[in-house]
Amino acid sequence: MAGQFEIFTDAESNVRFRLLAADGTVLAVSRAFDDKRQAANGIMAVRECAGTGLIRVVRSNPWTGQHASRNASPSPASHRRRHLPAV
């Protein structure tokens, strides 16, 4: 059985959706939407992007939220992104 999306209303009365695995494990929870139609559009966007989305590993710095760089202006080579294949 494939996973499924559930649209629900959270404790603050916002509409959200969650992606569940076949065993019921919550894999992802969306941002808040104003109504069910917007949540459904969000699900459609996830469906469209998920199959072709690349995986990117991001290192974060707890102070800035970004990877710290030693150089004030990093070279273009340091901005190369490594994309991992979806499994």
Rank of each mutant, 00 (worst) to 15 (best):
M1K: 02
M1Y: 07
A2T: 13
G3P: 14
G3F: 15
G3T: 10
Q4F: 13
E6L: 15
I7Y: 00
I7E: 00
F8T: 04
D10W: 06
D10K: 02
A11Y: 03
A11D: 01
E12W: 11
E12H: 11
S13I: 05
S13K: 07
N14E: 01
N14G: 04
N14M: 04
V15C: 03
R16V: 06
R16S: 01
F17T: 03
F17S: 01
F17R: 01
R18Y: 01
R18F: 02
R18G: 01
R18W: 02
L20K: 13
L20N: 08
A21V: 06
A21G: 04
A21F: 06
A21L: 03
A22L: 07
G24E: 00
G24K: 06
G24A: 02
G24D: 02
T25D: 00
V26F: 08
V26R: 10
V26K: 12
L27S: 01
L27Q: 06
L27P: 00
V29P: 06
S30F: 14
S30W: 09
R31A: 10
R31P: 07
R31S: 08
A32M: 05
A32S: 13
A32H: 05
F33V: 03
F33N: 01
D34R: 07
D35Q: 03
K36V: 14
R37N: 05
R37W: 03
R37E: 08
R37Q: 09
R37P: 05
Q38A: 12
A39Y: 13
A39T: 12
A39N: 04
N41Y: 02
N41R: 07
N41T: 06
I43H: 05
M44H: 15
M44P: 09
A45E: 09
A45Y: 12
A45L: 13
V46G: 00
V46I: 11
R47T: 11
R47P: 04
E48A: 15
C49Q: 08
G51I: 03
G51D: 11
T52D: 04
G53N: 10
G53L: 08
L54V: 15
L54Y: 15
L54E: 14
I55W: 04
I55R: 01
I55H: 02
I55V: 15
I55G: 01
V57F: 05
V57A: 05
V58H: 08
V58A: 08
S60M: 14
T64F: 12
T64K: 02
G65E: 04
Q66A: 07
Q66V: 12
Q66P: 00
Q66G: 01
Q66C: 06
H67Q: 11
H67F: 07
A68N: 09
A68Q: 09
A68I: 10
S69T: 13
S69L: 10
R70Y: 04
R70V: 07
R70C: 00
N71T: 15
N71W: 14
N71S: 13
S73K: 13
S73R: 14
S73Y: 13
S73N: 12
S75A: 13
P76D: 06
S78L: 14
S78E: 10
S78A: 09
H79E: 10
H79C: 10
R80P: 00
R80N: 01
R81C: 09
R81E: 10
R82I: 15
R82M: 14
H83A: 09
H83N: 07
H83K: 05
H83C: 13
L84C: 07
L84V: 14
L84K: 02
P85C: 01
P85Q: 02
P85A: 03
P85F: 01
P85G: 00
A86W: 08
V87I: 12
V87M: 09
